[in-house]
Simulated assay, not measured.
Amino acid sequence: MEAFHTIEPELNCEFTLARKHWGNVDLEKIEQACDSTCTVDVAAVVMQEGLAHICLLTPSMRLLRAKIEMNIHRKRRGNCSLYDKALEGFYKNVIQGI
């Protein structure tokens, strides 16, 4: 009948999807979409100073694998050592997360 339905579930909100008859193709697609161990297409690190999100991207979802958050001291005239040390520590944590 070419009838389609769209739903927009909210983040961390459980929902139940019911159907009287499921085809094998539909069941396989649902299993693949829910399987977090499926093949990952892309790994991404999205970051700004002091905050980094390490994500894995699949065809059907984005998985947040790590969130790294650190306080980075601001640069001060003549003395950047605290800033440099904090930034270096932040980058080390990001690399460990990867």
Results as ranks from 00 to 15, higher is better:
Glu2Tyr: 11
Ala3Tyr: 00
Ala3Pro: 04
Glu8Gln: 00
Glu8Leu: 02
Glu10Ile: 04
Leu11Ala: 09
Cys13Ile: 00
Glu14Thr: 09
Ala18Gln: 08
Lys20Arg: 01
Lys20Asn: 12
His21Leu: 09
His21Lys: 02
Trp22Phe: 05
Trp22Ser: 01
Gly23His: 15
Asn24Ile: 13
Glu28His: 05
Lys29Glu: 10
Glu31Trp: 00
Glu31Asp: 04
Glu31Met: 01
Gln32Ile: 10
Asp35Asn: 12
Ser36Trp: 13
Thr37Ser: 09
Thr37Pro: 00
Thr37His: 14
Cys38Tyr: 05
Cys38Trp: 04
Cys38Thr: 09
Asp41Arg: 06
Ala43Gln: 12
Ala44Phe: 15
Val45Trp: 08
Gln48Pro: 00
Glu49Val: 10
Gly50Thr: 07
Leu51Met: 06
Ile54Tyr: 04
Cys55His: 11
Leu57Ile: 10
Pro59Trp: 04
Pro59Phe: 04
Met61Glu: 06
Met61Ala: 12
Arg62Pro: 04
Leu64Cys: 03
Arg65Asp: 02
Lys67Leu: 13
Lys75Val: 02
Lys75Glu: 01
Lys75Leu: 12
Arg76Asp: 06
Arg77Asn: 15
Arg77Glu: 15
Arg77Ala: 12
Arg77Trp: 13
Arg77Met: 13
Gly78Gln: 02
Cys80Gly: 11
Ser81Gln: 15
Leu82Thr: 02
Tyr83Arg: 14
Leu87Asp: 01
Glu88Ile: 06
Gly89Leu: 13
Gly89Arg: 03
Gly89Phe: 09
Asn93Ile: 10
Val94Met: 01
Gln96His: 11
